[in-house]
Write a protein that binds this DNA or RNA. Structure first.
Lengths: 112, 112
DNA sequence: TTAGATGCCTCGAATCACAAGGTATATGAT
DNA sequence: ATCATATACCTTGTGATTCGAGGCATCTAA
C-alpha cells in the first residue's frame, strides 16, 4: 500500500520556521514576512503553507502556542520546545546533507 | 481555477539529470545510479522518478533520445539539446538562489 | 465608508515524489 | 535445467506537500 516516505527534499518550510523561532517567539503572520526577508526574497511562502505547518509542528510537540491579544486582534505566538530544538538540529543536518550532495553534483568535473 | 506554480523547490531531479547529461549521454538506468554516486549517496531517486522526468524533458525539447541495442537489451541514451543547456542554466540559477536564501536564514544571527 | 493592512484560518486543486509493480533479456549459481 | 539476481525499460496508484484563493474579523487611513 505504499507507505511513501516524505519527498526527499521537503521539510524546508519546517526548517525555516523552526530556525526563526529558535531566536524568539513569533506569530504566524509575522513569520510569513520574516521568511521572505531572511531569505533575501529568495523564498516566499504563503499563509496557506505556513499555518498548516505551524499547526502540525504544534501537534507533534515541536512548538508551543500562546495566544496574546494585541490591540483588538489576537496573535498566536509560537516558541520552540526542547523537542523542537532537536527537530531543528535534525532538519538542519538533513539539509546540509542534500545541499552538499547537490553542490558536489553541480561542481563535478566536465562542464565547460 | 488555481493555476498553482510549481512548488518552490521542485525541479531538483530535473537539475541533476541535466547536469549529468551535460557531460555525456547516458541512459535511464545508468542515471539512477549516477545520481546516487555523484551526490555522495545523499540523494537517491528511484526509477519511478527518473523515467517520467526524462520523458517530460524529451517532450519539452530539452533532451533528445537515441535507442541503442546493447547485448540483447535496448538502452535509451539521452543527450542535451541547445534548449536543454539553457534550461540547465536557468535551473542552476534558481537553485543557487534558493540555496543561498536558506543559507542566509540558517546563518543569521541569534542561535546559541 | 471604503480600501488596505493586520491577523487568523481552511479548502480544492495542482504538483510532485514514492513504492510497487510489470515486462523482458542476460548472467551466475545451484 | 532452474532459480535468483542484475540489467533495462516502463506505468500506475497513492500519499505528501505546496499553491492559490478565498473567508472571517479588526484596525487605520483616506
Amino acid at each position: 500500500m505504499a507507505k511513501s516516505n516524505p519527498p526527499f527534499m521537503s521539510g524546508v518550510p519546517e526548517l525555516l520556521l523552526l530556525r526563526l523561532l529558535d531566536n524568539r517567539e513569533m506569530y504566524g503572520y509575522e513569520l510569513v514576512r520574516a521568511i521572505k526577508e531572511v531569505t533575501g526574497e529568495a523564498i516566499s511562502l504563503g499563509e496557506g503553507v505556513i499555518y498548516p505547518v505551524l499547526h502540525s509542528l504544534e501537534r507533534t510537540g515541536s512548538l508551543k502556542a500562546r495566544r496574546k491579544p494585541v490591540g483588538g486582534r489576537t496573535r498566536v505566538y509560537y516558541s520552540l520546545t526542547r523537542q523542537g530544538r532537536g527537530r531543528l538540529a535534525d532538519l538542519q543536518e538533513d539539509w546540509r546533507r542534500i545541499q552538499g550532495g547537490i553542490e558536489t553534483a553541480l561542481e563535478s568535473p566536465g562542464h565547460a
